[in-house]
Simulated assay, not measured.
Amino acid sequence: MPARTISAYADEETARVVEQIAELEDRSPAQIAAAALRFYARLPSEARAAFRRIEKLGTDEDLDSLTRAITRKTLDAEWEVAHRRFIGGMTGVPVPSADEGVDENDLLAKAVRLTQ
């Protein structure tokens, strides 16, 4: 996909942290910024609006709490993806994501087929 350059202004502390992350991850600050923008752009408008309200009205502790919650969900999602890929690779049977409904009858039928 062709890329475009866009500009953003950041306070000194944020710019310093982005530079540190970039160095630690052996990436450019632009790559870090692009990843952050991809994440933000994928959020529904309600989540972006809530984040802006928390930034405006909340405390640093509120933002830290939000960051911890997002971190937990991100790590949970990474585990789910790895688990799904591992099990699917072992069995050759695609494993639905946690967000997809699992039909208990389908699950039982697949278990029976696997044990035969």
Results as ranks from 00 to 15, higher is better:
1 M>N: 08
1 M>Y: 04
2 P>Q: 10
2 P>S: 14
3 A>N: 05
4 R>W: 12
4 R>S: 13
5 T>P: 00
5 T>S: 11
5 T>A: 08
9 Y>G: 09
9 Y>S: 14
11 D>A: 01
11 D>N: 11
12 E>Q: 11
12 E>V: 05
14 T>D: 08
17 V>F: 06
18 V>Y: 03
19 E>A: 15
23 E>H: 13
25 E>C: 06
26 D>A: 10
27 R>M: 12
29 P>Q: 08
29 P>R: 05
33 A>D: 00
33 A>Q: 06
36 A>N: 02
36 A>G: 15
39 F>V: 13
39 F>L: 14
40 Y>W: 15
40 Y>C: 03
44 P>D: 15
44 P>H: 13
46 E>M: 02
46 E>P: 01
47 A>L: 13
49 A>Y: 06
49 A>I: 08
52 R>H: 08
53 R>A: 11
53 R>H: 10
54 I>D: 05
55 E>A: 12
55 E>I: 05
56 K>Y: 09
58 G>K: 03
59 T>F: 04
59 T>L: 01
61 E>H: 04
61 E>L: 08
61 E>S: 08
62 D>P: 02
62 D>V: 01
62 D>K: 01
62 D>N: 10
63 L>D: 01
63 L>N: 03
64 D>Q: 15
65 S>I: 04
66 L>W: 03
68 R>I: 06
68 R>G: 02
69 A>T: 07
69 A>Y: 05
72 R>S: 06
72 R>G: 00
74 T>M: 10
74 T>C: 02
75 L>T: 05
75 L>K: 09
75 L>N: 06
76 D>Q: 09
77 A>V: 00
78 E>A: 09
80 E>H: 04
80 E>G: 00
82 A>S: 06
84 R>I: 03
84 R>S: 02
85 R>D: 15
85 R>M: 11
86 F>K: 12
91 T>V: 00
91 T>Q: 01
95 V>S: 00
102 V>A: 09
102 V>S: 05
105 N>I: 07
106 D>W: 15
108 L>N: 07
109 A>W: 04
113 R>I: 09
115 T>F: 07
115 T>S: 13
115 T>H: 10
115 T>E: 15
116 Q>C: 04
116 Q>I: 07
